[in-house]
Design a protein around this nucleic acid. Structure first.
Lengths: 168, 168
DNA sequence: TCCTGGGTGTAATGTTGTAACAGCACGATA
DNA sequence: TATCGTGCTGTTACAACATTACACCCAGGA
């Protein structure tokens, strides 16, 4: 987990990839989820989501706590609470391989199999829904009677930008 | 990560699944790796591997430290050192989704795409190598120029035994 | 008014993983 | 035999990630 010196963004064009996602779209999805649950979409939740959406890259909860701090100093536990809501709302996903969180403006269908491609160098995440992968997973599962539940796949690799710049 | 009350083995037939893997086979693989590297296959490494092989289920490093303690009390850092060797040797894999380690007696080929199916209830892990998944991943990657590096896929779900016993 | 449910703020603690350093065992070499 | 290097072990300390517990506030309903 702490194997890389800085797991999030050490490559040369740190600023250029991880293109920001549509903050308005993702926020409105969060709002309607809150509405449907009868809970408020609080400033706390709003600012955590806005930060993640603007950054467009995975961030750790502690990193979020640091950056969100507009005036007051935020504690990690408060960030985790906001993240919990945002994950339920489907606006934020957790990258287990990096213990990091990122905003996502895709609306993932129920049985959909999503692939997150994480650049080992710059940390940028690209998403794709692959029916072929889903079929492969079902095939692998069938032989053992296993029932896949949350087909969220994380693959480490090298994104196009980082692959194009071999230095560091 | 700490979301489940006990991520490793809370279901009724805890003892029955996660069938132990072939301890002798996996140990001999570790021995030949050690030989090829010119380093010893120490009792420390041997006992960590033996424990993992016998349990057949993922365990955290701290859990291993507790259980291995035959006479002396083992510290986590020592377990991590043994695990590092065993991972290099290909005898042990790390489950990022649970921060846990498990022994594996398959010999995975170089570019092979391996799918680990983790039962959310009992924690048992089943492995499968899927060419279809590999192709799907390559297809998903191709559109963005992403180059997958370590195609180790973890899928949460429900194993056949747990699916058959709906209670709890 | 009181009660209840949910969000917030804060402290404490638990869990996972590394860094750093001293000591030891063992083989190579002079 | 002496010494040197290499790699494992034992130990302390700490960093990074995550949860629990509790007090407080505030809005809405009985």
């Amino acid at each position: 987990m702490h194997r890389n010196p800085d797991p999030r963004g050490t490559c040369a064009h740190e600023e250029t990839h991880g293109h920001p996602i549509d903050g308005d779209a993702v926020e409105s999805r969060a709002r309607s989820y809150a509405l449907s649950k009868g809970v408020p979409f609080t400033p706390m939740r709003q600012s955590v989501l806005a930060l993640l959406a603007a950054s467009g890259k995975p961030m750790s909860a502690y990193e979020i706590a640091e950056k969100v701090s507009d005036t007051r100093k935020l504690k990690a536990v408060q960030v985790y609470r906001a993240l919990e809501f945002l994950q339920e709302a489907g606006c934020v996903h957790r990258l287990a391989s990096r213990s990091a969180y990122f905003a996502c403006d895709h609306l993932h269908g129920e049985g959909e199999t999503v692939v997150f491609m994480v650049c080992a160098q710059c940390g940028a995440v690209q998403e794709a829904a692959s029916e072929l992968v889903a079929r492969g997973l079902r095939g692998a599962a069938k032989t053992t009677g296993f029932r896949p539940r949350h087909p969220m796949i994380e693959v480490e690799g090298e994104c196009a930008e980082c692959a194009g710049t071999p230095e560091r």
